[in-house]
């Protein structure tokens, strides 16, 4: 397939889901699927938890769906002749709740990715409410390319895009509900979060020589505003679609799959990857961090997994002045 001049029309649904409004969000998904089909879209991507809204807390269990849920089956049925990625709360047979993204194609649910990394720090509290997925797979799609799906924080972990590319993905898709923060005037496009994501996406596209599709929601859940800015990045790291920040809409772009072949021949990074080296060194590191092996390159008093002996931290934050470093005598 890659030898052919093939174009794939990708549409990003940069929407503002209603928090907890599963029925309303299902209706908007069906509407956008219809609109995309009318526009000859091949792949329509919805953002993380587009069917439920993001800041669910205890609502998560109330909007969760099993994979055979008729509402999901009906959504899949609406993908006849096209592909879509939708995201929702999945309840497993043993009643764990996952943040899931599913590839729907030709009327069927083809693949489900369960979010691997659940941020539970700063403004995030996902691990309290959700279980983390355990598998990462690229899958073939009707579009003639391999697709690898990650959900938001999954792409803040270097291994994820690399594993997906090594597993055969040529299009890496990240669906996100990214809360915008840091309005410092020095930020590119005026938003720190956008600067970070834009950097990541371009880097991953270039290092995996793959297309990177980033679909981020807009709208407001409670205190947080989601910033949109969905993008499609070509395998050479250049943005070929940059949706506006904060504007709801369906944004489309045609990608040429020949760009993948061209870039991978010109810049054969994937060819030169050495996963066996990764495995060997990672196995060593895992053993050292668990204290099951000694680290020949570490200082003698270093804790397992660290190379350097621990040093005193600087003074602590507000509320912990008693432990301030310079008051300690040692």
């Amino acid at each position: 397939m890659l030898g052919l001049v093939q174009s794939i029309k990708i549409a990003l649904a940069q929407i503002a889901p209603r928090l907890g409004g599963l029925q309303a969000n299902l209706a908007s998904h069906h509407r956008l699927l219809d609109e995309a089909r009318a526009g000859d879209v091949d792949l329509l991507v919805f953002p993380e938890l587009g069917l439920t809204g993001y800041l669910l807390q205890d609502l998560a269990a109330e909007v969760a769906m099993r994979l055979d849920d008729p509402r999901l089956v009906s959504l899949a049925a609406a993908t006849d002749g096209m592909s879509a990625i939708v995201s929702f709360v999945e309840e497993s047979a043993d009643h764990r709740l996952f943040i899931a993204a599913a590839l729907l194609e030709d009327g069927e649910l083809r693949h489900v990715h369960r979010k691997l990394f659940l941020p539970t720090y700063g403004l995030f509290d996902e691990r309290r409410f959700f279980a983390a997925g355990d598998t990462l797979r690229a899958v073939p799609s009707r579009l003639g390319v391999g697709i690898g799906i990650g959900v938001c924080e999954d792409f803040w972990h270097l291994a994820v895009p690399q594993v997906l590319a090594l597993d055969g993905a040529q299009i890496l898709v990240n669906v996100s509900s990214s809360p915008g923060r840091d309005l410092a005037a020095t930020n590119e496009v005026g938003l720190g979060t956008a600067t970070s994501w834009r950097t990541l996406m371009r880097t991953y596209a270039q290092l995996t020589t793959s297309f990177v599709v980033f679909c981020n929601r807009v709208g407001v859940d409670e205190s947080i505003s989601f910033w949109g800015g969905s993008e499609v990045i070509a395998p050479n790291g250049a943005a070929i679609l940059s949706a506006p920040l904060y504007d709801e809409g369906l944004y489309t772009v045609d990608i040429a799959t020949a760009d993948i072949r061209r870039e991978r021949i010109a810049l054969p990074l994937l060819r030169d990857e050495r996963p066996e080296l990764n495995i060997r060194e990672l196995e060593r590191i895992v053993a050292e961090r668990a204290g099951l092996a000694s680290d020949s390159t570490a200082e003698p008093d270093a804790e397992p997994g660290h190379d350097l002996t621990a040093v005193d931290p600087p003074s602590a934050a507000i509320g912990f002045r008693a432990n301030r470093g310079h008051e300690r005598k040692s």
Binding site: L183, A184, G190, S225, L245, Y246
Partner: peptide, 16 residues
């Protein structure tokens, strides 16, 4: 270091 992008702030606050 406290200067913000006021255009982005206005967009966010209006939506909020």
């Amino acid at each position: 270091e406290l200067a913000i992008d006021t255009d982005v702030a206005r967009r966010v606050i209006a939506g909020f």
